[in-house]
Amino acid sequence: MEAAGTAMYPLHRCKTIYLVRHAQGIHNVEGEKDPSAYMSPTLFDAQLTPLGWKQVDGLREHVKKCGLAKKG
């Protein structure tokens, strides 16, 4: 266990990675009706639903407002 305030690498040499779950896709809607739909090749690269696009827009606004978009 590392002591408080120490790290293996200096912070200026580290990157922060933010993981975000995808928005609702057609496969989510179909999978709720029939779980076997998740295995359908036609849903392999499913498009977003209208709700999914609203979720994307909401996340975009959140990232802008909290300043993550400006960090680099």
Rank of each mutant, 00 (worst) to 15 (best):
Tyr38Trp: 15
Gly72Ser: 15
Pro35Trp: 07
Ala37Tyr: 08
Asp57Gly: 04
Val20Lys: 00
Gly31Val: 02
Cys66His: 11
Ala37Thr: 06
Ala46Phe: 02
Arg13Pro: 03
Pro10Ser: 12
Tyr38Leu: 11
Ile26Ala: 09
Ala37Asp: 05
Ala4Asn: 14
Ser36Thr: 15
Val20Asp: 00
Cys66Val: 15
Pro35Leu: 07
Lys64Pro: 01
Ala46Glu: 00
Cys66Gln: 12
Pro10Cys: 07
Glu61Met: 09
Trp53Lys: 14
Gln55Gly: 02
Leu51Ser: 06
Tyr9Asp: 11
Ala7Arg: 12
Ala7Lys: 09
Cys66Asn: 14
His27Thr: 00
Tyr38Thr: 03
Gly67Glu: 05
Lys65Ile: 05
Lys33Cys: 08
Lys15Pro: 01
Met1Ile: 12
His62Met: 14
Tyr38Asn: 08
Gly5Leu: 05
Thr16Trp: 05
Glu30Lys: 13
Glu30Gly: 05
Met8Pro: 08
Gly58Leu: 04
Asp34Trp: 08
Val63Glu: 00
Gly52Val: 00
Tyr18Phe: 05
Ala3Pro: 10
Leu68Thr: 02
His12Ser: 12
His12Gln: 13
Lys33Pro: 05
Ala4Cys: 12
Phe44Ser: 07
Ile26Asn: 03
Gly58Thr: 06
Ala4Gln: 14
Ile17Ser: 03
Gly52Trp: 00
His27Ser: 04
Val63Thr: 04
Lys71Val: 10
His62Phe: 13
Asp45Gln: 07
Asn28Thr: 04
Ala7Met: 10
Gln47Val: 07
Ala69Asp: 10
Asn28Gln: 08
Val20Asn: 00
Asp34Lys: 10
Leu43Lys: 01
His62Ser: 10
Ser40His: 09
Thr42His: 13
Arg60Glu: 02
Arg60Thr: 03
Met39Gly: 13
